[in-house]
Design a binder for these strands. Structure first.
Lengths: 220, 220
DNA sequence: GTATGCGTTAATGTATACATTAAGCAGGAA
DNA sequence: TTCCTGCTTAATGTATACATTAACGCATAC
C-alpha cells in the first residue's frame, strides 16, 4: 500500500472536480485558489495542473488562471476519429491474439452489465459498463500506447457524455454491436472485429454530433 | 517575441540531450544533477521532467533517478501501429478536404527535399525531410489531436531511427510511396490516399523491425 | 553464515520566500 | 475624447529551505 503523493492526489481530486462539473468547462481558476481549496501548497497543485494539461483537460494560461478546457463539437469529432481508429485496431489485434474464453470474460461481463443497466434504466450504470467495455477492449489489444491514448480521449469526452446521457434514447442497438464485436474476437476474425467496431464507433459519433447540433451545444 | 520560461527551455534542452544521445537510453539521472547541468534550480527541471514523462521520453522513478526510457522492438511495433492508423486517417482527411496546390506545396517540397538528400547521399537531410513530410501530412489532416500524438510517437522513435539510419540501404522506394500519397490527396481520393499510406507505413515497420532483429538491438 | 531490524542518509516531495512579468489603470499630452 | 506612458500590483515563475521517505549498511541475534 503505497502512500500517494500530494501531486497524485491533487491530480485525482481535480479530475473528479472537473468530471463532476464543480469546475465547469470554460471557467478560470488561480493556482492559489485551487491550492487553498485542496489544502495544499501551490507546488503539488502546479505539478498536477501540468499533468492535467498534458492530458488535455485544462489549459494553463499565464496570468489568466487555468481554464477548464471546453469541448466543442469539432473537438468531439476529432476525438471520436481517434477513438475509432485506435479501438478498431485494438479489436483487430485482440482477435489476432487468440484469447480464450477466460481472457474474454471481463469483456463479456461488461456487456452483461450494460444489458442489466438498460433493463433497469440505470443510465449511470450503463455509462460505467460502457467505459468498462472500451477499456477491456483496448487491454485485449495489447498495445499499451493505444490503451493510454484511448483512456485520455475518453476522459476528455466524459463530461459531454454525462450531459447527453439523459438526452437520448436508451442505446439499445449499441449492445448488439458490442456482442458482435466480442463474437468476432472470440472466433479469431480480425478483419471482421475491426470493421464491426469501426461501424459501431462511426454510428456513435454520428449520433452524438447530431445531438449536439440539435441542442445547439457549442461547448461542454 | 515571448521570453520562454526556464521550464520550457529545460524541456527543449533535455529533449535535445536525449536525441543527441548525451543522455543515453536506460541511463539514470538525479534531479539535482540535471539541474546543475542546466544551471537551474530543481523546480523548473522537475516540471520539465513531468512534461517529458507525459510524452513518454523518461520514467520518473522516485529515489532511483529519472530513467531515459529505452525503446524495445515491442515498443517500436506498438508505436508504428499507432502511427500507421493515425497517419492513414490523416491522409484520408487531407484528401477529403480538397486542398489546392498551394496548400499542398509544403508536402511536395518535403518530397523534393528527400529526393535531393538521396541524390547527395545526405542521410541526415533525408531524415529531416521525412519528418517534414509526416508532419505536413498530419497538418493537412486537420485533426490537432492526431497531429500531436503523431509528433509524440515520432519523438519516441527518433533515437532508433538515428541508429538505423546508416544501417540500411538508402530508402529509394520510400519516395515513390510518398509521391503516390501526395497524388491521391491532390486528386481527392481519400480511400486511395489512406490505403497507400498504410502500405507505406507497414513496409517501413517491417523493414525497421527486421533491422533491429538482425542486429540484435534489444533496446535503443 | 544468514537473516532481521534499526539507524543513517541521500534523494525526492512539499512548503514557502522571493523575483519577474504582464495586465490594467491613472494621468497627462495630443 | 483618445492614445500613450509608466506605475502598481496581482499572479505566475523560480529558488531555496525544510520534511519525508525509502535504500543501504551495519550490528546483533539466531
Amino acid at each position: 500500500m503505497n502512500k500517494p503523493s500530494s501531486t497524485a492526489m491533487a491530480v485525482e481530486r481535480l479530475r473528479n472536480l472537473i468530471f463532476k462539473g464543480e469546475l465547469p468547462p470554460g471557467s478560470d481558476h488561480l493556482e492559489t485558489e485551487l491550492a487553498a481549496q485542496l489544502g495544499l501548497s501551490r507546488t503539488p497543485v502546479r505539478e498536477a495542473l501540468l499533468v492535467l494539461e498534458s492530458q488535455g483537460l485544462v489549459d494553463v494560461r499565464p496570468r489568466k488562471g487555468v481554464r477548464i478546457r471546453p469541448i466543442s463539437p469539432k473537438d468531439m469529432a476529432e476525438i471520436y476519429d481517434v477513438l475509432t481508429e485506435l479501438e478498431s485496431l485494438a479489436a483487430r489485434r485482440a482477435a489476432e491474439a487468440g484469447h480464450d474464453a477466460e481472457a474474454l470474460a471481463p469483456l463479456a461481463r461488461s456487456i452483461d452489465n450494460m444489458d442489466r443497466a438498460l433493463a433497469s434504466e440505470d443510465r449511470e450504470a450503463w455509462a460505467s459498463a460502457d467505459d468498462q467495455f472500451h477499456m477491456e477492449l483496448v487491454r485485449l489489444g495489447q498495445n499499451a500506447r493505444i490503451a493510454s491514448i484511448v483512456q485520455m480521449m475518453a476522459d476528455q469526452v466524459r463530461r459531454a457524455r454525462q450531459v447527453t446521457l439523459y438526452m437520448r434514447d436508451p442505446p439499445l442497438q449499441s449492445n448488439d454491436d458490442h456482442r458482435r464485436v466480442l463474437d468476432a474476437i472470440a472466433s479469431g476474425a480480425p478483419d471482421k472485429a475491426a470493421q464491426l467496431h469501426r461501424a459501431h464507433r462511426d454510428a456513435a459519433k454520428a449520433t452524438l454530433i447530431a445531438l449536439l447540433e440539435t441542442h445547439q451545444l457549442k461547448q461542454l
